[in-house]
């Protein structure tokens, strides 16, 4: 993994520059295995930065969350750059935002971290439900080494890794200004095993599976807000006239919300899995996103967020796109 000293030095260098506003990275969380986003405006604040296998958050969401209050008279727009620490999947989200012209490339400084996978906080909390003090987690080959109360514990990586990381095809950020450490080459291939199994089931079974999941949805929209690509000025669920989706929480509206959320990410989702991580109701949201990802790969040979020059999937076409079911 990454040399934290190198990371901090790099961040310090960046925030000392006149044309950089702040750098977004990770710092130690408040308890247990938590890691929390951190904003460094000064070199001192950069001291807090860490990078460990617990850094699951996709920080690129903050690029689009930045609030720009209306300028006062005589005030000039702050055009300084924002620095950002990204992993492989986060970088794809950045590429996607740039591709859609949500941001300008020159407004960013990207610190790339070649990623060897991150730990699913849900999985590790199940193993250590009572851990309050922060824990040091290191990666050693195929294992994670946890230091708890001075004792080392070795756990196979596979037991703790996010599912998405097990099939990650782009572990090294596809876009970066600085790359910390050596590139990580992936030999993995996304097989969509889970998706294919569900696809093969009968309609009734599929509906049972999903309606049970959607029934749990409380529409807190954590999935939307945590997503770096959900940055519409007004989300369709907040729109009042016409009000496409009622605010009532019931099976019909919840299903539509979840379908539309997934659909709006068609050809845009970078597969970072933040929606599923943020969902307090454990709805398997990546299974929806991955399904669309798989389809567009098969139907249109398109992968989101890897090529800055490409046009967005649904803003272009090929004359010979599929016509199988068209009458």
């Amino acid at each position: 993994m990454v040399n934290e000293k190198q990371l901090r030095d790099e961040v310090k260098k960046l925030v000392s520059r006149d044309d950089v506003k702040y750098v977004i990275g990770y710092e130690q969380g408040t308890y247990g295995f938590q890691v929390t986003p951190s904003f460094a405006f000064t070199p001192e604040e950069a001291e807090r930065f860490i990078f460990s296998p617990l850094c699951a958050n996709n920080l690129s969401v903050y690029l689009m969350l930045e609030e720009k209050p209306p300028l006062r008279k005589g005030e000039k727009e702050d055009t300084r750059k924002v620095g950002l620490v990204v992993k492989g999947c986060d970088a794809r989200a950045v590429v996607q935002i740039l591709q859609e012209k949500g941001l300008k490339r020159e407004s960013l400084v990207i610190i790339g971290v070649p990623c060897t996978g991150v730990i699913d906080p849900k999985k590790i909390t199940v193993k250590f439900p009572h851990q309050i003090k922060p824990v040091d987690v290191r990666e050693e080959g195929n294992h994670y080494v946890l230091t708890i109360n001075g004792k080392n514990q070795k756990i196979p990586k596979d037991e703790l890794l996010f599912e998405k990381c097990k099939q990650c095809e782009y572990p090294t950020p596809v876009i970066h200004d600085v790359l910390l450490g050596d590139e990580v080459k992936s030999t993995k291939k996304e097989e969509y095993k889970e998706i294919k199994t569900l696809e093969k089931k009968a309609l009734k079974e599929k509906w049972e599976f999903w309606s049970k999941a959607f029934d749990r949805c409380i529409r807190c929209y954590a999935c939307r807000n945590v997503c770096p690509l959900c940055y519409c000025k007004e989300c369709i669920v907040d729109q009042l006239s016409p009000q496409w989706i009622y605010r009532s929480v019931n099976r019909s509206e919840n299903t539509v919300w979840n379908l539309i959320r997934a659909y709006h990410l068609a050809g845009r989702c970078s597969g970072c899995g933040e929606c599923e991580r943020a969902c307090p109701m454990n709805i398997p949201l990546t299974m929806l996103n991955k399904k669309i990802e798989k389809d567009i790969k098969e139907l249109f040979q398109y992968v989101a967020g890897v090529n800055l020059e490409e046009k967005p999937l649904l803003a272009m076409f090929k004359p010979n796109d599929t016509e199988d079911t068209i009458l």
Partner: peptide, 16 residues
């Protein structure tokens, strides 16, 4: 302001 910097503005905390 420093607390709110990292807030995403979702409703998980309030709904729950």
């Amino acid at each position: 302001k420093t607390i709110a910097m990292k807030c995403l503005g979702c409703g998980a905390c309030t709904y729950l």
